[in-house]
Amino acid sequence: MTTVLARPSAVAAPARPEADAARRWRLLAVLAMLSLLLLWLGLMAGPSGLSWSGWLADLGSDQAALIVGEIRAPRTLGAWAVGALLGLAGALAQGLFRNPLADPYLLGTAAGAGLAVVLVLAGASLGGVAIGLATAQWLARLGIVLAAFVGALTGLLMTLALARGAHSPMRLLLSGVVVAVVLGAIGDLVTFVSPDALRGKQSFLLGSTGFLGWGSVAVLVAGFAVALPLARRYARALDALTLGEDSAASLGLDLPRIRLVLVGLLALTTGLAVSQAGLVAFVGLVAPHLVRRHAPAPQAFTMLASAAMGGVLLLAADVMARCVIAPQELPVGVLTAVLGGGYLMRLLSRQERE
């Protein structure tokens, strides 16, 4: 497997630091304005799509507090928070593995969450038939959201056990692939035994922001408030890793401990996002790409900007998902996969021509 190294801007000092700093501030300002615009559009998007008359009618109705305050507002804010967590997780994964093709789902977290959800659904439909149903019923008591989070952490722990810690990034990466394949196969076997769980599994795999409430927003925001400062605390270590393992070790860095902490943060951010919105594709992969393309910078800025970019991308996809075929909705994960995949195809095509 060929490893493509990212192009970190921390390796060489920029030729025009003032211009680069201004470029970064401009990117953050643009992302902030886009976030505000999309938050307003998210509040406006209703059964008739983006309609000014429909928006005014919603505000003037007796159900305005319910429609806007209890349904659209938490969904809109939650979609931004899920995207921010995925964007931060993508920056962590690409910095940790020094590979711009790394995404947040590499370490078995997505497969573990998917299997936990399938066990919950199978346990509810089979009502105690033996497929490890003691586990399934225990997960059912937790609920799908908590089960997905527990499953994501379980997938990560299996990956760490197979890789014997976080000493070798390559071994960690390969272990994540193996764990994902095994857990995915077990999930397929469970859905074969319990076909009723297939519909719920498909909904989870396609991703959805339609069930986000204020409780979800509180959990997502709290997780993001904890993860972002901790991740930026280790940003200099990731910058040092771009110089190579030996160079980073010569600076006195405890690389195994740093990798373990970063893997834990990656699991926390990914697990929270997956448990609340399912598997939303490409946001964590594309967001850091867009940041590095428009404002190359050290990891501390890349993490912050990638989080903001991820929030913008997922919220834009959520608004589109509600409006394209209104009053019906598209799964938001389908739109992110189409748009993110299209962007990467265009990028690869341009690089091939160059």
Rank of each mutant, 00 (worst) to 15 (best):
A300T: 02
I131C: 13
G252V: 04
G333R: 11
A161V: 10
A15G: 04
G342W: 10
G83T: 06
A6L: 09
G54F: 00
L106N: 02
A65D: 08
V182N: 05
R75Y: 10
A297I: 03
T159I: 07
V226L: 15
A147V: 03
R98H: 12
E352M: 11
V82Q: 03
R346P: 00
G215R: 02
L251M: 14
A122T: 11
T159C: 09
L262Q: 12
I131K: 00
G90W: 06
S306Q: 06
V179E: 08
G210P: 08
G341R: 07
S275V: 08
G90Q: 10
A140E: 14
V120C: 13
D20A: 12
I258T: 13
A337G: 15
L153M: 12
P296N: 01
V286K: 01
A300L: 02
P100E: 11
L220R: 07
Y105Q: 12
A22D: 03
D246Y: 01
L279W: 02
S51W: 00
V291A: 05
S51T: 07
Q202V: 14
A45F: 07
I71Q: 12
L37H: 00
L34H: 02
V190G: 10
L266T: 03
V226R: 04
A102C: 12
P17D: 10
V181W: 13
L314S: 10
L330M: 15
A277T: 08
G310D: 01
D188I: 00
R98V: 04
E245P: 01
T209E: 09
P298R: 02
L315G: 00
F204G: 08
P14T: 11
L251H: 08
L139C: 08
G278Y: 03
T2N: 08
E329G: 13
T302M: 03
S216N: 13
M1A: 14
L313N: 04
V226Y: 02
A148L: 05
W40Q: 00
A64W: 14
I67P: 04
A337P: 07
R7V: 07
M320K: 00
A222T: 14
F211N: 13
A140S: 12
A307V: 08
V177I: 15
T336N: 04
Q202K: 05
Q276I: 08
R350Y: 07
V120K: 08
A134H: 05
T159K: 05
A295E: 01
M44K: 09
A237S: 14
L206T: 03
A316G: 11
P100Q: 11
L156E: 05
A111I: 08
G213V: 05
R350D: 11
A300R: 11
S53W: 01
V261I: 14
R292L: 03
D196E: 15
G252I: 01
S175K: 06
A225R: 02
G69D: 10
L5V: 09
G123R: 04
G112N: 09
A148V: 04
M44T: 06
A307M: 05
S247D: 10
G210A: 14
G132P: 11
L266E: 02
G83V: 08
L41S: 11
L31R: 01
P74H: 07
L260P: 00
P331V: 02
S61D: 05
N99P: 12
L241H: 03
T209H: 03
L119V: 05
T269D: 03
L262K: 05
L266P: 06
R236A: 14
F149T: 00
